[in-house]
Amino acid sequence: MSAAVAIPHDMEPHPVTGMYNGKFGLWLFLASEVMLFGALFSSYVLLRMGAPEGTWPKHGAEILNVPLATFNTVVLITSSVTMVMAWAALKMNNIARGQLFLTVTFLLAGAFLVVKYFEYSEKFNHFEVWLKEPMVVDGNSVSSIRGHLAKDCPPLTKETHIRAFAIPEFILLDPDAPAGSKEHPPTLRIDGGNIRRISDFGPAHSTFLATYFTLTGLHGLHIIGGMVVILYFMLTGSRFAQKRPDKYADRIECTGLYWHFVDLVWIFLFPVLYLL
């Protein structure tokens, strides 16, 4: 790269900002990220405040899994600590220790995604059926039923042009156990003629889940982006650090800034989506 020109303040802080270029640039990028997630949070509040009666769950925990999310919160906070420890180790010229902490951060991020995968797939196997005429389940008359498809239920198909499940001839549904009990009511047979709409607990289910999947999905993409960068430094870092330890510590500091921001977003997503 001899063609590269020497850029001022590539490493040493500028008197006006007290930062080198990379760090200042990263903070600006994070400011724009604040506006991105800000717009999405704002949309969430707007849609929730305007939601028609009974279409929004009382709190996210009605549908979502709080213990798993709490575990994930701890995982992500820990990864933030290991990230900053990696930087501290590099600052003390302990490259091996720095790379080790970087690897731990990567593994924790991976663990977060694995947990998220299980959370997501649980949602995609869970269904809700809205009925035209109420049915009696377990002694109660209900207009919509939640449950899992029974084993011998014919597979559902999607109508591609409207991106929704086609109404089948009939379905066999194992309804969820009512609140406070473990016993599942017997398998139900529901005729297509009585089905107004059928959906899994994916984004199309309701505006709440749409918001949940969009926000956590976008956050997940940020995690993946961070993991790609961390992986790159795991693979190439030690050789670069031998040559230019200061520059490498700066790079890890910038990566860290991004990573802490991703953690920070989750700190707000967790209560807003799961607990409120």
């Binding site: 800000g38 704002s42 509040v45 305007g50 939601a51």
Partner: peptide
């Protein structure tokens, strides 16, 4: 941005 929901007429949202 967060004022958006506050300034919006909620009668008009969702229906």
């Amino acid at each position: 941005l967060l004022l958006l929901p506050v300034i919006t007429d909620h009668e008009a949202v969702g229906t």
